[in-house]
Design a protein around this nucleic acid. Structure first.
Lengths: 203, 203
DNA sequence: CAACTTTTATATCGAGTGATAGATAAGTCT
DNA sequence: AGACTTATCTATCACTCGATATAAAAGTTG
């Protein structure tokens, strides 16, 4: 048990509110007054709990990762590479248009570009996006070893492709694309995925 | 000829500098001091010429569109739908990693999410992105009429897919993906494009 | 040149930024 | 109870934000 006055707000609920503010307004666009109002706490409590605005974002990102880890576990458990890709894009189409959250992806909306003093936020988000890509890559390497993917398939390219499409889906979802539109993008992407292995030069 | 003291700075050069600042830092992250410093002018000159920070962004976006219009003209002149798609994604891979510019796409970096008082910026950017998608759509409708695309092809879905991939490429380019990585994404995307027409349900 | 028009530079506006100092409140431990 | 520890509140910090009033500067037109 800890000594001292106990925290009077619920950490997870506060983080959920902060997550939504960052999601909707981005890191630079999310002001301290927005955040404290949404979280229902005052600035000193926020700083005592998270250290800084950036610390709060990282805590919110951790919670975001926690939310998605269950989905990713299901995705990676797909029996074939093609199933994994289908599960991945389907889950993206659903989650990025979940009315319980702001549209799009926090890791994209959070801040691709930031102002002075927030230069490392884009790196932080990129690093988190890269984790998903790495998980897909690992699964595709396995699929290749299993003979599930053809010998000339490129797991790196496939994982990067899916990760890129997911980011793009985040962009169009935030711009108002609905769930059916995202599903169509997923469908076309899978058509492309089915043709994997054939390396044809571009440009 | 106009009366009064002539403007002492070059409009286009100033806009190019402003464009770069918005590109690198986003709308919210681009402060007036950054902008005026990069443009080499003082705030009153900026406001006299562009009216507001938002007016400056729109002028920069117009100039950005002007830059890309030549590329799009070439893209749309592709002899087949497949060629159009290939030209489109190739030009994206090149432009989004052009060392002369910040990485990625201004229409994505500029601000997917903004703070209080900048709520319409994301709409403005989305509207400009939609223009490209509409151009692709028109070309694919034509391709279908020409019999170039199969009768069961979905031009809307194809245009949306390419637009989505382009946005995704903007995201990963801004995170440091190099030109070859973007070319690989384009290559895989085209594999998917080749399988267009087959509608297979997702999820 | 003098009248007129527009742009420029200096200085500053009120509002909001992220962050914190100091005092008070609310618990646990001995 | 009383000492101790941590959280919360009020108020405010120095700073930056986007935007502008004012006046001097630099041209054109008569």
């Amino acid at each position: 048990m800890v000594m001292g006055r106990p925290r009077s707000f619920d950490m997870d609920k506060a983080l959920d509110e902060a997550m939504e503010v960052f999601w909707r307004h981005g890191y630079d666009g999310a002001s301290l007054s927005m955040l404290t109002k949404a979280m229902g706490i005052k600035a000193p409590s926020l700083y005592a709990a998270f250290g800084s605005k950036e610390g709060l974002l990282k805590a919110a990102l951790d919670r975001y990762a926690l939310r998605r880890s269950a989905h990713m576990h299901y995705v990676l458990a797909g029996p074939t590479a093609r199933d994994v890709a289908e599960r991945f894009l389907s889950s993206i189409a659903e989650s990025h248009t979940d009315p319980a959250n702001p549209p799009g992806c926090l890791l994209v909306q959070g801040g691709l570009a930031c102002g002075a003093g927030s230069e490392n936020i884009p790196f932080e988000l990129a690093s988190r996006r890269a984790q998903t890509e790495t998980e897909l890559l690992g699964r595709f390497v396995q699929a290749k070893a299993d003979g599930d993917l053809p010998a000339d398939a490129d797991p790196v390219a496939l994982a990067r492709f899916l990760s890129t499409v997911a980011s793009g889906m985040g962009v169009i979802a935030s711009s108002g694309a609905n769930r059916e539109a995202l599903r169509e993008v997923a469908r076309v992407s899978l058509d492309a995925f089915a043709g994997s292995g054939k390396t044809r030069p571009v440009g």
